[in-house]
């Protein structure tokens, strides 16, 4: 279990409350970096980190391009940039065109993270209203990582989780509480 090097979370409509609950449950000494790619308004650059930080004991950061990835931090893909993880554990950002109507695109973040971390990545897809993230989660499976989706029955909008389950055989379908319990066991 403790072999994992990073946790990647993707979400869209209906995921904010879930992410807030997950973040609030993690202790200040949580050892793994958490990478989050959440759909957000492209033109609003500030406010999201602040809103998520209210209940977080861990620092939440929108990484700058080329910033090294560090444990014990939560990274949020910045508005209007795709966020990648490069070999050597640095972030890179991109202004390439939208993918699945989204920038940041969850698929693109998951592709790069799964390529970088291979089997040492945990990929989690939460509530969302489009299929962005489904192929990304498949890439986690294809690279030997562990996959979790929020139980569609619990999702405000289950399109993203359902699409993910159709794209790949996921390891776990969890409620928010089960996701939290699982993440705490990794610490």
């Amino acid at each position: 279990m403790n072999d994992y090097k990073a946790i990647m979370i993707g979400g869209s409509a209906g995921s904010f409350q879930v992410v807030s609950r997950i973040i609030a449950a993690l202790p200040a000494n949580y050892p793994l970096p958490i990478l989050m790619c959440l759909h957000r308004l492209k033109h609003i650059r500030s406010g999201f980190v602040e809103a998520l930080s209210i209940k977080s004991k861990l620092p939440i950061i929108e990484p700058h391009d080329k910033e090294p990835l560090k444990a014990g931090r939560i990274y949020l893909a910045p508005a209007n940039y795709h966020m990648y993880i490069e070999l050597g554990n640095r972030f890179s950002l991109s202004t390439e065109d939208v993918v699945n109507h989204s920038r940041p695109s969850i698929d693109l973040s998951f592709f790069s993270a799964s390529y970088n971390f291979k089997r040492k990545l945990v990929g989690i897809i939460l509530s969302g209203a489009n299929k962005d993230g489904a192929l990304g989660l498949k890439s986690v499976t294809d690279n030997g990582g562990l996959t979790i989706v929020q139980d569609p029955k619990e999702c405000q909008v289950p399109t993203m989780t359902t699409a993910s389950m159709n794209a790949t055989k996921v390891d776990y379908v969890f409620s928010t509480k089960q996701i939290i319990d699982f993440l705490l066991k990794l610490a």
Binding site: Y84, E86, L87, S92, S94, E96, S112, Y115
Partner: peptide
């Protein structure tokens, strides 16, 4: 060049 961007 940045690998992921170049690859894409």
């Amino acid at each position: 060049y940045t690998f992921t961007i170049l690859k894409r």
